[in-house]
Design a protein around this nucleic acid. Sequence first.
DNA 1: CTGTTAGCGCTTTCAC
DNA 2: GTGAAAGCGCTAACAG
Lengths: 346, 346
Amino acid sequence: MTDRPSITMKEIAQRANVSVATISRVLNNREYVRDDVRRRVLEVIDEAGYEPDHMARSLRTRATHTVGFIVRDLLDLVFAAMAQGADSVLGEHGYTMLLATSGLDAELDTRRFAHLRQRHVDGFILAVSDERNEQLVAEMGRASVPIVLVDREMTGVTADAVITDYRPGTDEAVRYLAELGHRRIGYIGGDQRLRPGRERWLAIERAFAAQGLTLDASLAKRESFATEFGYEQTRALIDTPDRPSAIIAGGNQIAVGVLQALHDSGLRIPDDISVISYDDTDLLRVGTPPVSVISRPLIDTGRLAAEQLLARLNQEPPGRFEPVSIVLPTKFEVRESCRAHEELSS
Amino acid sequence: MTDRPSITMKEIAQRANVSVATISRVLNNREYVRDDVRRRVLEVIDEAGYEPDHMARSLRTRATHTVGFIVRDLLDLVFAAMAQGADSVLGEHGYTMLLATSGLDAELDTRRFAHLRQRHVDGFILAVSDERNEQLVAEMGRASVPIVLVDREMTGVTADAVITDYRPGTDEAVRYLAELGHRRIGYIGGDQRLRPGRERWLAIERAFAAQGLTLDASLAKRESFATEFGYEQTRALIDTPDRPSAIIAGGNQIAVGVLQALHDSGLRIPDDISVISYDDTDLLRVGTPPVSVISRPLIDTGRLAAEQLLARLNQEPPGRFEPVSIVLPTKFEVRESCRAHEELSS
DNA sequence: CTGTTAGCGCTTTCAC
DNA sequence: GTGAAAGCGCTAACAG
């Protein structure tokens, strides 16, 4: 904070007997520098251990080579994986990720965003926790840098997006359950203010219809992605006289609650009840039994978001553009959490 | 990147009929500004929607209010939790985290570190992937900003650290197993180049000795924190004629491999074999059965690291200091993964 | 209390 | 091809 041990460009210029302009040209690989001069400069730079000052450069060029990434919670594997994917791409391209977690507090989204905007990040990757946050939308309007949303849809903003198509995986999963003879299937889904909450629900409805299943309102809940919600709703579902023979968890955190509730109430998977979840985690993959999941490429989602953002940053000419949405598929992975349900009916 | 929509300090100065110096004073809450002037300036700033330029300020003050955080892999819950903890503290104090993941590549640690150093982060929080990385040590020497290590020990560098005392949790865990009658206990531990690898091993040795148990070399492996290592070693352990009656996994990723291997070979926990792991994850907590763990406060580790760093940054006078190590305890949490072992002996 | 001035370290016209 | 000079937007002496 206090020291200035590093050598400056001016210093290099003197040692190499050229002007700072020339140093700058060499540094930025500009043409119009005689070869021998360039070599000499490079030599001096090297032996002086000179490193250009990122900050000063940014002040001039207005480009910081940083990208702001705002997510709710890194403890959720979904976001951690996206962050990991995005960071690896950004790192490869000399960009650095400014990370900001917003917790459960939607208002924090806004504050963190504004903060990063003031720091002049070159762009944003966002997995906001409330798509209708108007304050945030306003802030996003003020930002004149490209934004990529990850599995979010926001109106009133110009932003690219990387989104997931939940239908293929959901169709397969529901068909699978139907073919196993399940009729009463519970669904515990997340917040409808977020795209995954809405789209999974729509996919579920559609898939149920395709299988001729009715989505009993008493069996379908959709309010929160929290583990607690999964827990409570599962307890409620299995406490009913005519309890469902299968449960679909609308998110990996919800699944944690579902599994815990089933464990606590002594129900065994898949003997007593079948389970399927969205998203793939260690718990679902190697738990006992391994849970069949509707999975999507999480790391790639992050990678693609970063790549899309970099594309915008290098776009010529910069400025207005038609936002694009990159769609990633889901798929159903059968494991050992479901079993045929012998209906007494028909 | 290209636009400059925002208004500058000079502009504000003119509108408020004062000099830029006064604006600066108001902005930085300096004394020596008449109250009415301050009010007027604030007013102008407000209605102009002026926001100070972080970059220009940093160029002058040499303080960026950013902290570099380098971890191997956010997909590992341990690092994600630490990042989450650190970010929440940093955010509260107006600091932003520059995140860099290094993957499995120790050399990337160095590159990422150098990169962040050139970006003039005010300090570092590091969970490096190789404590003896000499290149990195050299780079760290060049950095004249405070560094906090999280559960790492490096020689040749001046850095505070937040570390874990694995002994209490390990002692309890091993005693617990011993009291259940286990004599042949396998240990699958991680990389000895990292503090958790070494310290857990030492804690294990000590705890075994305290219980009068011998740590059979054929049952104790310690090479890698990878899931695959856990898998392979578990297969190897249970393929022996005199297989261990219990296995301790030296890390959460290792545990994934252990559980998978046991599942694949049809061994049931705890009926056929008992299992204990270090670190607590969803998989271990709500899997079937829930696995007893030696846990530590992960989020707090991140929080404390951030707090320690902030303390250094605000330290008067800045400069040299005696590094401190903050030690966090572990504890053993009994769940349902262990069962008494009936020895035929004695 | 307030203004003037000199930079922070770099990029970028514009001459030469 | 190269250099001189003018800032980027802000802070910090130093005068007044």
